[in-house]
Amino acid sequence: MDTVTHTLFGMTLYGAIDKKNESKEMKKSLIVATMVGSQIPDIDVISRLWDTEGLYQMWHRGITHSILMVPIWAFILTALCTLIFKVKDYKRLFFISGIAVFIHSTSDLFNAWGTGYFEPLSDIRVTFGVIPIVDVVFWVIMLTAMIFTRFKKKNSYKSFRFAWVLIALHISIQSLQGYFLYQQYEGKYDQLALSASFVPWNYTLIGKKADVVEITDDALFLDADHLYTLHSKENTILDDLFIQNPDARTLYKWSPFVVIVDDEEKVGIYDPRFYMDGESFLFEYVEK
């Protein structure tokens, strides 16, 4: 998910806690636990500073987003709160911090970018593609809860808890529809990827069979709309590309499948899940 959504997740998690009898120090600790916990897996963006081998695509949403890192991040945040605010409710802080980190890492599984959810045990990028990276439904639910609690401050945490119920329901509906569509297309292709549209209940299916990639917009309750047919030069040897452009090797490993370009001007690869208006923004190539 995008940074704004993760921030709203943290605010909504903080709002869902009943803080009526908490001290000021504990409330500050809970803010750190929820807000920092909702962002800390994305600390991997600083790896750009020392990436000289084109590995950032694998590092971002890699080990820092692993499910195995949840208790480690929770421990770090609990220790931080204990040192700064001198609070001693370790178990509760650890639990809340862990929930915040878990929501971040797990929510990122549902969009097309995916995460290294099981690193370092596996470097497979887990992606479901049933939620867009920026989901306005999430924003509407959480912002509505915040606005509502401005007028109804008594037991306001209940409104935020209800918001989490709606978020879970939205994810479930999106996931079920995406699953059914995926099943309908799976038999037609050798490889298939799903990417949710910004419009709720609409999806893009990207299927590859031999050297042909087809991109189709579809929804359970609407007719399919074929968008593009792409041709991949599957017989192209990519060794020189990988040597001259290390980012291309990383993209090849990171993507479920790629389209290979080999024409008079360039040789390269791109991820067709992000193809729009004649190009993909994940395109790595070298000029001939």
Rank of each mutant, 00 (worst) to 15 (best):
N202F: 02
N202P: 01
N202G: 03
N202Y: 00
Y203W: 00
Y203G: 02
Y203K: 00
Y203T: 00
T204I: 03
T204N: 05
T204Q: 03
T204H: 01
T204M: 12
L205P: 03
L205D: 00
I206H: 04
I206W: 03
G207P: 04
G207S: 07
K208V: 10
K208E: 09
K208G: 05
A210S: 10
D211I: 06
V212Q: 12
V212G: 04
V213Y: 01
V213P: 01
V213E: 08
E214H: 01
E214A: 01
E214Y: 00
I215P: 00
I215R: 00
I215E: 00
I215T: 00
T216F: 01
T216G: 04
D217G: 10
D217C: 07
D217I: 11
D218N: 09
L220G: 00
L220Q: 04
L220E: 01
L220A: 05
F221H: 09
F221Q: 06
D223I: 09
A224L: 06
D225P: 10
D225T: 13
L227R: 13
S232R: 12
K233N: 13
K233A: 15
K233L: 14
E234R: 14
N235Q: 14
N235C: 12
T236L: 13
T236R: 14
T236K: 15
I237W: 13
I237L: 15
D239W: 14
D239C: 12
D240G: 11
D240I: 10
F242Y: 07
I243Q: 08
I243D: 11
Q244E: 07
N245P: 04
N245S: 11
P246W: 06
D247A: 07
D247L: 09
D247Y: 08
A248V: 09
A248W: 08
A248K: 07
R249V: 10
T250Y: 03
T250G: 08
T250M: 10
Y252S: 09
K253P: 01
K253D: 03
S255Q: 05
F257K: 08
F257E: 10
F257I: 09
F257Y: 09
V259N: 12
V259T: 14
I260V: 13
V261F: 15
D262C: 13
D262L: 13
D263H: 14
D263E: 02
E264F: 07
K266C: 06
K266N: 06
I269Q: 12
Y270W: 06
D271E: 05
D271K: 05
P272G: 14
R273P: 03
R273K: 03
Y275I: 06
M276G: 05
M276R: 14
M276K: 15
E279Q: 07
